[in-house]
Design a protein around this nucleic acid. Structure first.
Lengths: 118, 118
DNA sequence: TCCTTGTTTCGAAGTTCGTCTAATCAGACG
DNA sequence: CGTCTGATTAGACGAACTTCGAAACAAGGA
């Protein structure tokens, strides 16, 4: 298999491998990675992103972990502040969904400008 | 411009948005993101990945920061243990280079299964 | 061999992070 | 209006992380 996909990297080139990263830019990016640097938050994002309809209710998320509801809420807040997910209240429940722009931006970060030149 | 690139995602689909992430897998991935969740390490990786020849000497890296040599060495060790870079001693100096497989793997994580079908 | 330069390891201080319990806020329903 | 359920906020504690200085290790040259 080829593993080749046509993806929108969201920019012209990969900053991590191609451009110089200044200090403030590095700090901002580190904040996003810090939000992802936790097994619980990673699984939360995975559950939300792969949920049917693209969104998941908090009530479903809390049941998937052996953690208290406030702890889950805390992790969701971290992901929200990092711009990776958004939350919306509809009636009784709060629904979360992933922010595709943030994900494609991260994908572009690691995509080398010219992976395997002939 | 289209921002479209043909990239090797390193796998058939994006686990973060497509597959279920089990606990051990999430913990392993969180370790990688934890290694990247620091402005200094992010800039170190950026310097190494974008260096001419694909590799950078520690002596060059220490000069780019207002940090002591042991601190830089510590950060390089974290990146090395995360599998993002590799180090090799040639004579007096140690040279570091990025591991492209790790970067493409991360890129594939954030690539949605079908982003923008033609 | 000894000394000099470059790199890593070790131990410690200060800070940040993850988790909990208790309390508060937001809607829905009698 | 009162109450019940669901979700978040506030405060606190223990663990982990970042950074440093000092010391140990590796390689090269006088």
């Amino acid at each position: 298999m080829s593993n080749l996909e046509l993806v929108d990297t969201g920019r012209c080139c990969a900053p991590l491998t191609g451009l110089a990263l200044d200090e403030s830019e590095a700090a901002e990016l580190a904040g996003v990675f810090k939000a992802l640097a936790d097994p619980v938050r990673l699984r939360l994002l995975n559950l939300i992103a792969s949920a049917s309809g693209g969104e998941a209710c908090v009530c479903d998320l809390t049941g998937a972990f052996d953690l208290t509801a406030p702890t889950i809420s805390h992790h969701l807040k971290v992901l929200r502040q990092a711009g990776v997910i958004t939350g919306e209240r509809r009636g009784t429940w709060v629904y979360y969904r992933a922010v595709p722009e943030s994900l494609t931006r991260l994908a572009g970060l690691f995509t080398p400008p010219v992976p395997t030149p002939a």
